[in-house]
Design a protein around this nucleic acid. Sequence first.
DNA 1: AAAGAGCACAACCGCGGTCAA
DNA 2: TTTGACCGCGGTTGTGCTCTT
Length: 273
Amino acid sequence: MGRPPCCDKIGVKKGPWTPEEDIILVSYIQKNGPGNWRAAPTNTGLLRCSKSCRLRWTNYLRPGIKRGNFTEQEEKMIIHLQALLGNRWAAIASYLPERTDNDIKNYWNTHIKKKFDKLQGNSDEENHHHRRQGDSKGRYSSPSSETTMTKGQWERRLQTDIHMAKQALCDALSIDNKSINLPDLPPSPSTTTYASSADNIARLLPNWMSSSKKTSQTSSESIETRQTKNESKPNMKHQMPPLSVLENWLFDDATTQADLMNMSIEESDDFFN
DNA sequence: AAAGAGCACAACCGCGGTCAA
DNA sequence: TTTGACCGCGGTTGTGCTCTT
């Protein structure tokens, strides 16, 4: 069909958000809740497209977002979840509720990927395993992109990767179960720039915390504020299973996929040697 | 102190999925 | 069944900041 860009209207503002714009958007969401982004620009008078409003909210203004450096445990989680899920940052972010998918994606691209690049040539297994993740989109979302691979082969390869990733995640979980519960972490050092601190908005809007449905909203509680309106529909990001569920799935699922695993072992020889 | 390089991250772009008419 | 609109996601880019020379 060819959809025209959503932001090609004349007069739609682009670029960094100003504090004033943030306040307007937060005020609007405070009244109406997140969702119905289409109506946000018209109802608020913001010269922004709906997409930009949604992105600004989800990546920055939303309560409960933790900023600053990633902890070692978070990094470990990201690495293993990425191995498990591929570049599905939103899904990964659902297990790190205080981090946005954008943050995780950026962190992966700027930090973790470099670490693996450095390891190239030193550890074959690591390299094979993780380098393959880099083109996961092509492999998983578009099997046809590999010209010689049949659908069956592609599915088996996917199962193989899932199996390997599960093993890796099992290892990580058994190494440090504490990390699963995302214990209280010391406040991360926030940067000084405006755009890196959502607390600015909270300060600008003193009623924000108190007038929301949950009166005393802590960082973790704020996750529940996402369960509003539009978000009643199934959405992995907002119906995040507890990590114990992930653990159970990891261990229980192993039996149900026994056949596939056997198949995968043969396949895996091709991929990891 | 200045200039260039590299880094970090906010924001944009384009595509796919979903749903209603 | 088709079409169009909206939403969400992942990849990519642009820009400001920091580091190095």
